[in-house]
Simulated scan of single mutants.
Amino acid sequence: MQLLAATAVSSMLVGVSQASLYPGQSNFNHTCALQTPFLSCSANAYPNITDSCCTETYGGLVLSTQLWNTYTGLESQGQVLPKDSWSLHGLWPDFCNGSYTQYCDLSRQYDPLPSPNTTTGTPSGTPIKPYNGSSISTFLAPFGKFDLLAYMNKFWIAQAQPNGDFWGHEFSKHGTCYSTFNLPCYGPMYRKHEEVIDFFETAISYYETLPTWTWLGAQGIYPSNSTTYSLIDFQSALVKGFGALPYIACSGPKYNATAAGNGTLDNGGTVLSEVWYYHHVLGRVQARHGVPINASINGGSVGNCAKAKGALKYPVRTVGSEV
């Protein structure tokens, strides 16, 4: 019944791109200290039951995502990857049934290169105009968040574009699709871009609890250009660390397009590239009370990597691309 309810709600909400996820929502103070926090995707986590500023009722399946890139393309400009660490990709709100929407509030569109370029990813969606204002990275200075900016420039790293452009993409595409980051939730004393800073700090707080490099290393798994690994190696190490099975993504040649996999039906990717950690959250996403759940919660895939023994590469980063 809960899944059916979530499906019904998500079908009504997909494609919304207004200034409020819930039109008509009050911008009076939302005093969450007086509200009972509910677990997202539970029977009480719906806007007609609870305050959607105090319990996540829109994107209740929260994915903290990380990248393993081997270069940035902007090394000459000092944009490098963090040594002995995966980098932060983002904090994504999926609907409880596993579907998702994007660019939910075009009045807060700070992405210079929207991808996709419509709200639905199809020609029938609302076009998303590229942002041409000051980089979202400049939003931190009025709040005195220089330490936050330094941290982001170390661990939240873009490839082939300035970091600020990447952060603008992540907030605009994903951050605007949470109920608890909705503008009315910030009340009458709201300061411009306050929710952007809140989103950045929250994304980092989840990232800091998910030391992918350390969890893999604890099982003897380190980047190598000679050693290969099996998918089960990564899955076992990350389940041990996280407590649930994340989604593991791979890029590179498909296994059945390689010499080793020629003639097989295994068309999974062969180069480790990304991990998505799934959570339900208690109360506000900003409260950082995430409950690990399996990526297969809705019967979906837990990755796109090759499953054959020894099929995966975890490549060493390019010389000069990390510090």
Rank of each mutant, 00 (worst) to 15 (best):
F38Y: 15
A308Q: 10
C96L: 01
K83F: 08
A260K: 13
V196M: 03
Y190T: 03
P315F: 02
A6Q: 07
G133F: 07
A8F: 06
S64W: 10
C53H: 10
F171S: 04
T122S: 10
T138C: 03
G121S: 05
P162L: 14
G243Y: 14
S20Q: 15
I293W: 12
L148G: 07
Q159P: 02
L238S: 01
P223F: 01
T214I: 05
V80W: 02
A5K: 14
F155C: 05
L21T: 11
P127T: 02
I136Y: 08
W156A: 07
Y314I: 02
I232S: 14
F139D: 07
S42A: 13
L231Y: 13
G175C: 02
S179A: 07
L13P: 02
E194M: 10
D266F: 15
G303C: 06
S76K: 13
C96E: 00
V323C: 10
S10N: 11
H193W: 13
L3K: 05
W92F: 09
Q219S: 15
P47Y: 09
T264S: 15
I128F: 03
S230H: 07
P47D: 01
C53E: 04
G263A: 12
Q235Y: 09
F143R: 11
K240F: 05
H169R: 00
T138V: 06
L13N: 08
A308H: 11
N182H: 04
P127S: 06
C250R: 01
L272V: 08
K309R: 13
Y190F: 04
C41F: 10
F28T: 15
Y247H: 12
A237D: 00
Q235H: 09
V285G: 08
T214E: 04
I49P: 01
L63C: 04
H89G: 05
L39I: 13
G59P: 07
R284I: 00
Q25G: 13
T264C: 11
N69Y: 11
S273H: 05
M1P: 13
V14Q: 15
G78K: 04
A141Y: 13
S321L: 03
L140V: 08
N27T: 14
H193L: 07
S137D: 12
T258H: 10
E195Q: 11
T126V: 08
D165I: 01
E274Y: 02
Q109F: 12
R108H: 15
N117G: 12
Q102P: 04
V239A: 06
T264F: 11
S205D: 08
L34W: 10
P211N: 04
Y247P: 04
T214F: 06
G121F: 05
G299E: 03
I221G: 01
V316M: 12
T264R: 14
G220Y: 00
N262R: 15
G187E: 00
S40P: 13
